[in-house]
Design a protein around this nucleic acid. Structure first.
Length: 258
DNA sequence: CCCTATGTTCCCAA
DNA sequence: CTTGGGAACATAGG
């Protein structure tokens, strides 16, 4: 479920609680997660994010990479509360980080040294309109598919792709190669704007998403098209429609997205 | 029972 | 080679 703003929210909240913490224990509670060894006693040096991947940098050049897929989440646990679907636990002196994941699609891996580079550019690190305009000249994909291609741009999922294209007044089905440089500049601006606002809102809670402290996000109150099929477009009054694109429910306003 | 789901990967067909 | 559809993963909720 978590896209870039949700992972960034966890990232910032983790920094508040794990500063200079030493890992006192690791528990693997799901056999889908492989064996994890040699982390006890290491210190968490930094918490980072690239796209939808959360990275915990540890002493000894160890790197924990977490991808939450559909229903994965993290919970900072200090009380006696019991939670179901706990798959992995990192115990620190001040509390525990629980990985909770009902559908068990989330992945966790431990690396030595650097993060493998299977992901595209993160919108907050480098989202260059000229580069993407030039690249997309040779692309035969609808723009929404390109925005969601993690090997090109890392972090945008179905909700924010719908929202970005609506605010940019571009149809999700427009071929990427047909977009002008000006339209790419607009997409970049709108992407940064929407993702920034969603981060400030601590993400979008449609159903499952909760932050590190079990609180709902707020960006669902700002959605312009996602989950609003049949409702009025706030921009032009048109009727929001939902159609499938690459198997994903795609919300858009046919009147103001071309 | 039916359908849907904020993600990714794989196989297969066009 | 590229792209898209569908299934798979596993579970909850409407």
């Amino acid at each position: 479920m978590p896209e870039l703003p949700e992972v960034e929210t966890l990232c910032r909240q983790l920094r508040q609680v794990v500063f200079a913490s030493k890992i006192s224990g690791i528990q693997v509670l799901d056999n889908k997660i492989g064996e994890v060894r040699g982390l006890e006693g290491r210190e968490i040096l930094a918490v980072k994010r690239h796209g939808k991947v959360l990275e915990l940098e540890l002493t000894g050049n160890r790197l924990i990479l977490l991808h939450f897929r559909m229903t994965g989440r993290l919970l900072w646990h200090i009380g006696d509360g019991l939670y179901s679907h706990v798959r992995f636990v990192i115990s620190l002196s001040k509390g525990r980080i629980l990985l909770i994941d009902p559908r068990r699609f989330a992945t966790l891996s431990v690396h030595k040294k650097r993060r493998p580079s299977f992901l595209g550019t993160d919108p907050f690190e480098d989202f260059n309109p000229l580069y993407f305009w030039e690249f997309s000249q040779r692309s035969h994909l609808p723009i929404k598919s390109l925005l969601m291609d993690q090997r090109r741009i890392a972090g945008i999922g179905n909700i924010y792709a719908c929202e970005i294209l609506h605010q940019a007044h571009i149809s999700p089905w427009r071929m990427a190669c047909d977009l002008s440089l000006a339209e790419w500049e607009n997409i970049v601006d709108v992407t940064i704007s929407i993702l920034s606002k969603a981060i400030l809102c601590h993400g979008t809670t449609i159903s499952d998403w909760r932050d590190l402290f079990n609180r709902k996000g707020m960006y669902q109150n700002h959605l312009a098209v996602y989950a609003r099929e049949g409702e009025r477009c706030l921009e032009c009054g048109g009727e929001i429609q939902r159609r499938k694109l690459n198997g994903r429910g795609t919300y858009f306003c046919p009147a103001c997205q071309n």
